[in-house]
């Protein structure tokens, strides 16, 4: 029961993070929220027992790709046009 509740909570947060990442105008905010999304996925995978996948998601998804996206955004206009 506790695990079920934890899963539901993470999945709800995941949906919220996905919607926020699409809706915000500021690209820097969007990429940070993407990092949050990746980390929630990592938690979900770790809880399912797929620790290798969770580890990759934590390093690549939440770590490097957020840094690379932020590094790129500093060379762009910050606002998304739509």
């Amino acid at each position: 029961m506790g695990l079920e509740l934890f899963n539901t909570f993470i999945l709800l947060l995941l949906v919220v993070a996905a919607i926020v990442a699409l809706r915000v105008k500021d690209l820097l905010t969007a990429s940070v929220v993407f990092g949050v999304y990746s980390f929630l996925m990592c938690l979900l995978w770790a809880e399912m027992g797929a620790v290798d996948v969770a580890f990759t998601e934590a390093t690549v998804g939440a770590g490097i790709s957020t840094v690379v996206m932020i590094a790129t955004i500093f060379n762009l206009k910050r606002k998304s046009s739509d």
Binding site: V51, D52, A54, F55, T56, T59, V60, G63, I64, V67
Partner: peptide
């Protein structure tokens, strides 16, 4: 244990970043 080339390489690259 969990880990391997991809994860270790990414952590190593992150230290230089």
């Amino acid at each position: 244990s969990p880990g391997g080339g991809f994860q270790g390489g990414v952590v190593m690259g992150a230290s230089f970043i």
